[in-house]
Design a protein around this nucleic acid. Sequence first.
DNA 1: CTGTTAGCGCGTTCAC
DNA 2: GTGAACGCGCTAACAG
Lengths: 336, 336
Amino acid sequence: MREDINITEVARKAGVSIATVSRVFNNNGPVKESTRKKIEQVIKETGYRPNILARELAEKKTHLIGVITHSILGEGLPNSIKGITHVIEEKGYNLLIGNTDGQIEKEQKHFEIFQSKRVEGVLFMTRHFTQEHRDVIEALPFPVVVLLQPTEDEKISYVAFDEYRFAQEATRYLLDKGHEDFVFIGGPETSANSLRREQGFKNALTSAGYSLDKERIIHEDYSIEAGYEATKRLVKEGVPFTAMIIANDGMAIGAINALQDSGYSIPRDVSIIGLDDTALAKASRPSLTAIHYSYQDLGKEGANLLLDKIESGNVDFSYKVLPYELKKRGSTEERY
Amino acid sequence: MREDINITEVARKAGVSIATVSRVFNNNGPVKESTRKKIEQVIKETGYRPNILARELAEKKTHLIGVITHSILGEGLPNSIKGITHVIEEKGYNLLIGNTDGQIEKEQKHFEIFQSKRVEGVLFMTRHFTQEHRDVIEALPFPVVVLLQPTEDEKISYVAFDEYRFAQEATRYLLDKGHEDFVFIGGPETSANSLRREQGFKNALTSAGYSLDKERIIHEDYSIEAGYEATKRLVKEGVPFTAMIIANDGMAIGAINALQDSGYSIPRDVSIIGLDDTALAKASRPSLTAIHYSYQDLGKEGANLLLDKIESGNVDFSYKVLPYELKKRGSTEERY
DNA sequence: CTGTTAGCGCGTTCAC
DNA sequence: GTGAACGCGCTAACAG
């Protein structure tokens, strides 16, 4: 482990002033070839790297983007991060990650830390976007783009999926196939997006002239086990149904397994659509018909929007709703 | 969006000197209650947060930990990051992420960027640990802990799993059950850990007195599809086997599906063990017997080791090999 | 209790 | 071509 070295030290070793070292390292201003060589030599020998903190302090630019997220598990966030880094690293920015585990105090705390770190912008993911968030964000000295949630506000830009609409479309797809008895398994009620999916589901049914019993709407925690148990319960209680719309594919896999364990055949007896399409969907037997959307694009679009705000000082409100696609697979199509 | 404000401005508004503001904000040194109140008032009104760059420049501490990783996808990294942040955020450190996509030039580049950013230490994940890495790391002015790879060196500390041994143990488990005809599906040959698993597999067989044909060892890209196709090929070619050891659970799921599609029953006709246990393993039917190990613990242990080096200046070599467990499930046990 | 001042390491004038 | 000196915002040491 070498010692950290600074520009003064390099200048001393090369017998020049720091200004000249700076000129060489940043390749601006004229330097005699011989002194350039000598300085480059010293830089190589010492492994000198300029202290970016000092540079950034002077330039008032940190080239730092923060991401605040409620969860780093699952397929969503890693893909988003991949999309984000792809965009920002190209422009010389680095990524700082703050994980909140869904706790609102931690969200607040990370905004403060990031402000102190002088990040130039933040991409913010949360399960629920509230008035409190709006107030906090508007008081921040850097732009924020919200991911995954419409801000319902003409001020804070966002990039999101149309959760309501794709849930509606998935439901209509099964309605069109003649199904009448539906079950919806959603995520926790604290998830705004799970509620939007539920609304889309309900709307599709009611506008098709059906009414809903309470027992047909269930909330679970997104886990495979929860999907399994909930479905087992439905079977045991004798609730009649031939179609399931399930908020994520983990729970959908659980449902498939539960039904098969109970002697049902899929899709002959029950058709299932997952509103989420991860590796699990393709792995299961039958494979899961699912709504597909790209978290990587979410990250990319969010990062582009944010960089635009940072670099051109654009404070205008804008938003982007990303596309989705219904991937038809074995859980709805006979012999697919 | 508010303006960024600095300590001088706060001092001016409160009619005091910057030293007093500093004392109030950092709660050190004595300050009269009335002036404290006034300063706190101004801080609240202005939303002032100290510029950490300046502080860190003065203190020569950044509280920044870098993670350099070859992939941010899959279950491994997110879990590692969760473990890492859990440890470091408690001590006031933040996480900077650098993704290399497995490209060696990017690894080098990120080490340089991180050095410039004056990170206080780096957790380094790579597919293959080479002499070149050793040289780079030893010239760095901050400690590095390697994750996932033994450094085979008494200098660079690491935390890893015992890939060789658990592959060996998995193989022995099926040997003990009487299997004689094995197939091994590994990851890409550029992955040192995949090779270690392969060695463990081979050793178990040869030390039990069996020899290996080449065709029984296959390398694929870890995807479900690749596992499926490779297995279909084996069946088609009529290679006889009753046991499979597969490097990750994605390919194992592919294998299960391929065998079932070909009319085989698992585990009656073929037993399968995955050397990796993600959500997929429990979701499949039959569920997958797999070697389980914790990436979250990997992150935690790595972070602890690194923080120890950072905070107590401990440069001694040390390493940690994490435990694993064979989770027996349906792909090896009849009616499990 | 409170203010003044010297660095922290760098980029950037402005002279020479 | 090159160097001296200032400023970025803050902490810490010292003075009062």
